[in-house]
Design a protein around this nucleic acid. Structure first.
Length: 111
DNA sequence: TGTTTGACGCTCC
DNA sequence: AGGAGCGCCAAAC
């Protein structure tokens, strides 16, 4: 008799990694999501730090749009020099940071 | 098996 | 407005 899975465990055979990757790949150019959004969309509500943990380990040459993930305050969470890379990529997609912040009301992606 | 660790988030003040 | 404090949660050790 299998036990009830934890409330936050979406499916036993699909890893958080795969789920996060899938959602990340689906974020449109020119839009952003928060770490919390990313985790929630992947099936892990309140696991914002998990999203960060996974993003942190992405290979440097990944093609996934890691730069479209910022914190809930609209700020870049990476330490330098990553922050500069991220800002550059965002601006390249038309997302301008004012006072170091992205206008979330305008660019936050909510499917 | 228990503890530590974050590219976090929310509430106070 | 901006910082301190605390909660959160799965991965790494």
């Amino acid at each position: 008799m299998p036990v009830e899975p934890p409330f936050n465990a979406p499916e036993t055979n699909s890893s958080a990694l795969a789920r996060i990757y899938r959602v990340l790949a689906s974020i449109p150019s020119g839009r952003v999501v928060t770490y919390g959004d990313l985790a929630e969309m992947a099936g892990y509500p309140r696991a914002a730090r998990l999203a960060g943990q996974i993003l942190r380990k992405l290979p440097k040459d990944t093609k996934l749009p890691w730069h479209r993930v910022i914190n809930a305050q609209g700020r870049i969470s990476l330490p330098e020099p990553g922050a500069s890379r991220q800002r550059k990529r965002l601006e390249h997609e038309g997302i301008i940071l004012l006072k170091g912040r992205v206008d979330m009301a305008k660019y936050r992606w909510k499917p």
